[in-house]
Amino acid sequence: MKFNLVYPLLIIIASSSYGILSTIVKVAMNRGYTSAEATASQYAIGFLLALILFIITQRKLPKLNRTGLLFIVLAGVCTGTTGIVYNQSLNYLPASLAVVLLFQFTWIGMFIDCFLRKRLPSRSETISLIFLFIGTILAAGIIDVDLSTIAWQGWAFGLASALSFAIFIQFNSRPVEGVTTISRTLIMSFVALVIISLFSSPEIIWNGQLFGTELLFFGLTLGVFGIILPIVLFSIAAPKVGGGLTSILSAMELPVAIIASVLVLRETLTILQIIGIVLVIVGMVLPTVLAQKKTSV
């Protein structure tokens, strides 16, 4: 039986879409908007887009059992909390270090998956995590950063964002019978919007700023690449791939984030960062390649 590469590819595309978000937010901030306003616009427009897709394709919510609804709601909660705590970490950390802490979701997600499935990491998964860990540090360019002056809140929020995203992957990798991808996206985006509205800038939704300014463009872009595309693709592929491999494949977000910042924001790219990106990509594709070879024998 051949290993199906379609689902890992969908995970890579979903995580890549997350990778361009930080660059879009920075562009919005350069235009005079705050990160909280950009984040609120992302989740508000993302929910509206999910609602439009739902009305066009279905118009009727599925009947969910309690467990299925719980998985979807908790995935939505984690989607919102990841954005909140990551933005908070940026108040205490250099952006490069915040990214490194967020990307600890790779091994956190792997260990959560191993715990839930009562298994040990495979040899390929262990080697992959080593590549990802070293590659992330090099790619983020924190070798020369002084860590002694960083407040403990920064470490706490940074690791909390990694834990939140790892849990999101686990909940989203659980198949839920009787629910379509669009319905799942609608519920998750609504829950995430509620969570974000408690901590960000919900007033932009009703004071006219969201729909009457350039913020609408940023909201549409962030909503498509930060809500619709990744949630839809994760909902399709994560249950097929599993939480452990999904965590590893999601590491594609880091190289994309760095490349986007270089192309759009004209940030510099060092040799060490290039080596780090290569190591991340090697660590990301290793389990998939080995699985394909194993199933083709």
Rank of each mutant, 00 (worst) to 15 (best):
L93R: 03
I84G: 03
L70T: 14
K60M: 09
A50R: 03
V77R: 06
T67Q: 15
S89T: 06
I72H: 08
I55V: 14
T81P: 08
T81C: 10
N87S: 12
Q58C: 00
N87H: 04
N87F: 08
T67H: 15
S89A: 15
T82L: 07
I72R: 09
L90P: 08
A75K: 03
N65C: 07
L70K: 13
F71D: 06
F54I: 00
C78L: 11
T57D: 14
Q58P: 00
C78Y: 05
V85M: 03
G83N: 12
Q88T: 00
S89G: 10
T79C: 09
A75G: 12
F54R: 08
G76D: 04
R66K: 14
T57E: 15
K60R: 15
G76C: 03
Y92A: 04
P62F: 03
T57K: 15
L70A: 15
N91I: 01
A50G: 01
L90H: 08
I84D: 03
A75P: 04
G80D: 05
P62T: 07
Y86E: 04
R66Y: 10
P94A: 02
G83P: 00
C78K: 01
L51K: 06
P94V: 00
I52L: 15
L64H: 05
G76H: 01
A50L: 01
N91S: 12
Y92M: 04
L70D: 07
V85A: 04
T79I: 05
I55D: 06
I52V: 15
V73Q: 08
R59P: 04
G68P: 09
R59E: 07
L64P: 05
R66S: 14
G83E: 02
L93G: 03
V73C: 13
P62M: 07
K60Y: 08
I55T: 12
G76T: 00
S89I: 04
T79D: 10
T79G: 14
G68M: 07
L93C: 03
G68N: 06
I52F: 13
F71L: 07
T81G: 09
L53S: 14
I84Q: 01
N65Y: 02
L53H: 05
L74H: 08
L49N: 08
L90R: 09
T79E: 12
V85C: 04
R59T: 02
G80F: 01
A75H: 02
L74A: 13
T82I: 00
A50M: 04
L61A: 14
G80P: 06
L61F: 13
G76K: 01
L49G: 05
